[in-house]
Amino acid sequence: MTPKPLVEPLPDLLVAPVIRAALAEDLGRAGDVTAQACVPGDAKLTADFAARRGGVVAGLSVIRLALAELDAGVTVEALAADGQAVPAGTTLARVSGNARAILTAERTALNLLGRLCGIATLTQDFVDAVAGTDARITDTRKTTPGLRALEKYAVRCGGGVNHRFGLDDAILIKDNHVAACGSVGEAVRRAKAFAGHLMKVEVEVDSLVQLQEALAHDPDVIMLDNFTLEDMAEAVRTVAGRVILEASGGVTLDTVRAIATTGVDVISVGALTHSAKVLDIGLDAVGT
């Protein structure tokens, strides 16, 4: 029986275009000439996608979708689930069918699967680091172009939560917006006047003085950008639960616990998606 995903999987509609683009890039103008030269068209193969090191699974659907683009007859048996922590040596999925299709799809599937599992694994490390506090770990928009939906899904698989997905789903006033408006207060005032009743307004501040100015205009969220731990703790006392406080700026596994203990609500970590190490996953032929 296929293990049940621990995180609601992305619809195929969102993943399939990424798969097609990656396959087209790899196939180039003549297709997989190595498979054509060395592997008979009717040859069969059974192979395992296996984790070379321990980590958190994310993106197993890329295996199925990559193979389906080349041969709908290839079977894929998932042996793990998205969101599951697995030790090194775990077989994530077994595939059986046309050998050419499996070998041609191999690199596309491994590239995406390794990337997504790496993000999920790093996210889980950050989530574990703040365990026992009330802080939640969230991502940013520092994602690979074209892969945002998949990479943010991987963050969820690792136990994190998602920040905004794009420029259109929330207002986030950064330092350059403030410079263009003239002040934090004026930027928040304009944003509140523009926003509909379902759109939240967040503003970035870089000092306790700016924090006070922002509070006077009732934003939904205030981002504390590169605050010291002492100033974060003071900000938490000042706000006293009136708005959500987000800590941001150069957060690492070495610093995230101390940040969480200041009492902030959310810690945004760009490294989840821009610096995650790919999880080493390989494809091993069975019975050879």
Rank of each mutant, 00 (worst) to 15 (best):
F227P: 10
T228D: 04
L229V: 03
L229N: 01
L229M: 01
E230Y: 00
E230V: 12
E230F: 01
D231P: 04
D231H: 11
D231A: 13
D231T: 15
M232R: 10
M232P: 02
E234K: 14
E234A: 15
E234H: 07
A235H: 08
A235L: 09
A235T: 09
V236T: 04
V236N: 06
R237D: 02
R237N: 03
T238S: 07
V239T: 09
V239K: 09
V239A: 08
A240K: 12
A240P: 02
A240L: 02
A240E: 09
G241N: 07
G241A: 08
R242Q: 15
I244T: 15
I244L: 15
L245A: 10
L245C: 06
E246W: 12
E246V: 09
A247W: 08
A247D: 11
G249W: 14
G249S: 14
G249P: 12
G250T: 09
G250D: 12
T252A: 01
T252Q: 05
T252P: 04
L253Q: 00
T255G: 02
V256M: 09
R257V: 00
A258D: 01
A258G: 00
I259P: 00
A260P: 03
A260L: 04
A260W: 06
A260I: 02
T261G: 00
T261L: 03
T261Q: 06
T261K: 01
T262C: 02
G263T: 04
V264Y: 03
D265Q: 06
D265R: 08
V266F: 13
V266M: 09
V266G: 07
V266K: 10
I267A: 11
S268V: 10
S268N: 12
V269I: 15
V269T: 09
G270H: 13
G270A: 13
A271C: 13
L272P: 07
L272G: 10
L272Q: 08
T273D: 01
H274V: 02
H274P: 03
S275C: 08
A276V: 05
A276R: 07
K277L: 12
D280L: 11
D280G: 12
G282I: 13
G282H: 13
G282T: 15
G282A: 15
